[in-house]
């Protein structure tokens, strides 16, 4: 099962975060991701979009393209912007001070997705996030989850 590919090009507007998040959570749910995984994927989409709005476009007008597709093993989410093109330091915030403002979105992406990469473009940035679908082994061992 691979399912449909979602692709949307939208304004960099915070009011669109929730509908895009809901759409990708729904896609993950239909692909068989468990409820926790769907929520974690949605949160990472939320945080990625918010980072684009706040840091790539600094709250100014802009656009972003969101793609998501399943390759039979993993859900891939790509978020392309045409903003500042600054690569976030994904790993610097792993021991984030709880009182320190900012950086939590990157922590979430780094912890909750299996793979995260930022690729600078001629103008802007391409963020790619991957989350593997886990399936219950056929032997019925409920504690034994394996990557699909």
């Amino acid at each position: 099962m691979t399912g449909p590919k979602y692709e949307m090009e939208i304004p960099a507007d915070a009011k669109l975060i929730a509908p895009v998040r809901h759409a990708i959570e729904e896609q993950a749910h239909r692909l068989g991701f468990d409820e926790t995984a769907c929520g974690e994927i949605g949160l990472c989409v939320n945080e990625a979009m918010a980072n684009v709005i706040r840091h790539a476009y600094h709250g100014n007008a802009g656009r972003l393209r969101v793609e998501s597709f399943f390759d039979g093993e993993s859900l891939h989410v790509r978020i392309r912007d045409w903003g500042s093109g600054v690569t976030p330091d994904l790993y610097a915030k792993k021991d984030k001070n709880p009182f320190e403002a900012g950086g939590l979105g990157l922590v979430c992406m780094g912890r909750l997705m299996d793979k995260v990469s930022f690729t600078p473009q001629d103008v802007g940035m391409l963020l790619e996030m991957t989350r593997r679908r886990r399936v219950l082994k056929q032997d019925g061992d409920e504690n034994c989850w394996s990557k699909a």
Binding site: I17, G39, N46, E47, P98, F99, G102, L104, G105
Partner: peptide, 16 residues
């Protein structure tokens, strides 16, 4: 049912 990091920032500011 759901909040993101921007909401967490609000809670931390409020805590301060």
């Amino acid at each position: 049912p759901y909040m993101d990091s921007s909401a967490i920032a609000v809670l931390v500011e409020l805590l301060g």
